[in-house]
Amino acid sequence: QEVDTIELTRQVKEKLAKNGICQRIFGEKVLGLSQGSVSDMLSRPKPWSKLTQKGREPFIRMQLWLNG
């Protein structure tokens, strides 16, 4: 299904801030990505339709983390 990447990243940033989790830790533990990649993804999320399967994976992980 289509994911609203802008809304998703907004919710993730909100939860990170609320729980005092830094992007570096979130990136390493949840997404398996560097802090730079995570920062870029959270500040400039690409539309779901423009992402490859590999590009979608971190957003799917974010969704699971939010719902977890």
Rank of each mutant, 00 (worst) to 15 (best):
Q1M: 15
Q1V: 06
E2L: 03
E2N: 05
E2H: 03
E2S: 08
V3I: 15
D4A: 03
D4L: 01
T5G: 03
I6M: 14
I6C: 10
E7A: 15
L8P: 13
L8T: 13
L8Y: 10
T9I: 09
R10K: 15
R10F: 04
Q11K: 15
Q11R: 10
Q11H: 09
V12N: 04
K13H: 05
K13G: 02
K13W: 02
K13P: 07
E14C: 10
E14S: 08
E14W: 05
K15I: 10
L16W: 06
A17N: 09
A17H: 09
A17S: 08
K18C: 04
K18Y: 01
N19K: 12
G20Q: 15
G20A: 08
G20I: 03
G20C: 03
I21H: 02
I21C: 02
I21Y: 14
I21E: 06
C22S: 14
C22H: 13
C22I: 09
C22G: 04
Q23I: 01
Q23N: 08
Q23K: 05
Q23H: 09
R24K: 11
I25D: 15
F26W: 14
F26Y: 01
G27L: 09
G27M: 06
G27D: 01
E28S: 13
E28W: 10
E28Y: 05
E28P: 08
E28K: 10
K29Q: 13
V30F: 01
V30P: 15
V30W: 09
V30S: 01
L31R: 08
L31H: 03
G32S: 06
G32W: 03
L33R: 06
S34F: 13
S34W: 11
Q35M: 12
Q35W: 15
Q35P: 15
G36D: 14
G36V: 10
G36N: 13
S37F: 13
V38S: 10
V38R: 06
S39H: 11
S39Y: 10
S39G: 14
S39C: 12
S39F: 07
D40G: 10
D40C: 06
M41R: 04
M41E: 03
L42S: 05
S43K: 12
S43V: 11
S43A: 13
S43R: 09
P45N: 05
P45E: 01
P45K: 07
K46N: 02
K46D: 07
K46F: 05
K46A: 11
K46R: 10
K46S: 13
P47A: 10
P47W: 14
P47V: 11
W48A: 00
W48L: 02
W48T: 00
S49A: 11
S49Q: 07
S49R: 13
S49W: 06
K50P: 00
K50C: 11
K50N: 05
K50D: 14
K50Q: 14
L51V: 02
L51C: 02
T52I: 13
T52G: 06
T52S: 15
T52C: 09
T52N: 13
T52Q: 06
Q53R: 11
Q53K: 15
Q53L: 11
Q53W: 07
Q53F: 06
K54H: 09
R56S: 01
R56H: 01
R56M: 05
R56N: 00
E57V: 06
E57K: 10
P58A: 10
P58F: 13
P58N: 14
F59N: 00
F59H: 00
F59P: 00
F59Y: 13
F59V: 00
I60S: 08
I60D: 04
I60W: 03
I60H: 09
I60Q: 08
I60M: 11
R61Y: 03
R61V: 02
R61M: 04
M62D: 00
Q63N: 03
Q63I: 06
Q63K: 14
L64C: 07
L64N: 15
L64P: 01
W65E: 00
W65N: 00
L66W: 03
L66A: 01
L66I: 07
L66K: 01
L66C: 02
N67V: 06
N67H: 09
N67M: 07
N67G: 12
N67Q: 10
G68V: 01
